[in-house]
Each structure stands twice: as C-alpha cells, then as structure tokens.
Computed example of a mutant assay.
Amino acid sequence: MSTIALRHARVHYGPLEALHGVTLTAPGPGLTVLLGRNGSGRTTVLHALAGTVALSGGAVVWDGTDVTGVPAHQRARRGLCLVPERRAVFGSLTVRENLGLTSARLGPALDAYPQLRPLLERRAGTLSGGEQRMLAVSRALLARARVVLVDEPVQGMSPEVAARTYELLSGLDACVVIAEQRLPPVLRGRPAVVYELRRGAVVFAGEAGELTR
C-alpha cells in the first residue's frame, strides 16, 4: 500500500505560476483521477509528483515522508513510474526492446495487450498513436511500481482497448493516478478519487459518483 500527496504545492514556469498551492492526496491501492482542460495544471501535478518539475513552494509527501528534494530518478528507483503523454516510448527501439527495458518477462504485457504480439520486432516510432499508448501502459504494468502516474492513458485507442486499459489500471495493486480532460464513462461506476483542476487550482475533490450527480 502506498499513498502520495501534494501539500500546498506551487510550480512556476518562468514568471508564470502553473500550480497555486495545490493540496491533494492519492491513496493506494486505488485509482485517483485528475480532471481538467489543457492548461488546468493536471499534467503539472503528475510531473510534480514524479519530480520531473521542481516545486517553488509546498511539498510532495510519499507514505508520510517528505520527498520534495528527492530527484526523479531516485523516486523511480523507489517504485514510482511516470507515463507521460508524449515521448513515453523509445522510438528507435523495437517493441520487444522497449518492454525488455522494464522486465525480461514479456508475458504479462502481451496478455494485457495481445495486439502488441505481432508488433514485437517493429520499431516503436513506427507504431500508431494508440499502439504506442498500449506499449507505454504495458511497460508500466511490467514495472510493478508502487505509484503509477499516467497522463491521458487511452489517447488514440479504440473504445474497446480503452475500456480494457482502465480495467488494467484500476486492478493494479498500486497507487494509480491518471490525468484526463473528462471523467471516462467507464469509471463512473468504479470507486475512484477525483480532483478537478482549473487554472492551477483544485475546484472539486470527491468520489467519481459525486461528480456525475
């Protein structure tokens, strides 16, 4: 079980403040959904949790320990996996090589996404957008991370594959945080913590069912 949180977090990009004292908690095992339009701060929250952007104020707390000063690569070694929206796979490597960077056991990834099996010897950069997202998410599944952060996990996927992806992420024994523009219909009936962000601030915090009422 793992829990990760932001406490009064502020992030600046030059003179612009992207997060205005954001406080949120993502409990695990379980699913937390960050909602918001482009520019709302949801992607910045993921990167702040991962350590790939620095806080200008506040803290990142992981299982009760302040990890604000812990570099991103050390957070990864401790069991945090970030799947960004862009550049989530190594385009010059094959699908097999991409998966092999995470685990020598490819079976779980191919069971999750059988569509990847005939693509194993293809370079990841030649895949469609949906296929690249499948590859990126399958690497997160193989990582067996304690905290999994995924930005727009189903971008480019068919509705059937998207539903399967949400099922896979929801079933992980980890703290899973995903960022989406809207609450996916398939998640409305599932237990999930939801935060809605607008212009760098939290405007809603509650359960998925509360948001849809």
Rank of each mutant, 00 (worst) to 15 (best):
T94F: 09
T94D: 11
V95N: 01
R96M: 06
R96D: 11
G100E: 08
L101F: 13
T102H: 05
S103L: 10
S103T: 10
R105Y: 12
L106E: 04
L106S: 10
L106R: 12
L106M: 13
L106I: 09
P108I: 10
L110I: 09
L110A: 08
L110C: 05
A112L: 07
Y113L: 04
Q115I: 09
Q115V: 13
R117D: 08
L119D: 00
L119K: 00
L119A: 01
L119W: 00
L120K: 04
E121G: 11
R123N: 09
A124V: 02
A124I: 00
A124K: 01
A124N: 02
G125Q: 06
L127N: 00
L127R: 00
L127I: 00
G129R: 03
G129Y: 05
Q132T: 01
Q132L: 01
M134L: 13
M134R: 04
L135W: 04
L135R: 05
A136V: 04
A136S: 09
R139L: 01
A140R: 06
L142T: 03
L142P: 04
A145C: 11
A145P: 12
A145T: 11
V147G: 11
V147D: 04
V148Q: 08
L149S: 08
L149F: 04
L149K: 07
D151S: 12
D151E: 14
P153S: 12
P153Y: 12
P153E: 13
P153V: 10
V154S: 15
G156I: 04
S158M: 12
E160V: 14
E160K: 14
E160H: 14
V161T: 15
V161M: 15
A163N: 12
R164M: 09
T165I: 07
T165D: 10
T165L: 03
Y166S: 04
L168W: 01
L168N: 04
L168Q: 00
L169H: 11
L169R: 03
L169K: 10
D173I: 03
A174N: 08
C175N: 00
C175F: 03
V176G: 15
I178G: 14
A179W: 02
R182Y: 15
P184K: 03
P184V: 11
V186Q: 14
L187W: 11
G189L: 05
G189S: 02
G189C: 05
R190Y: 10
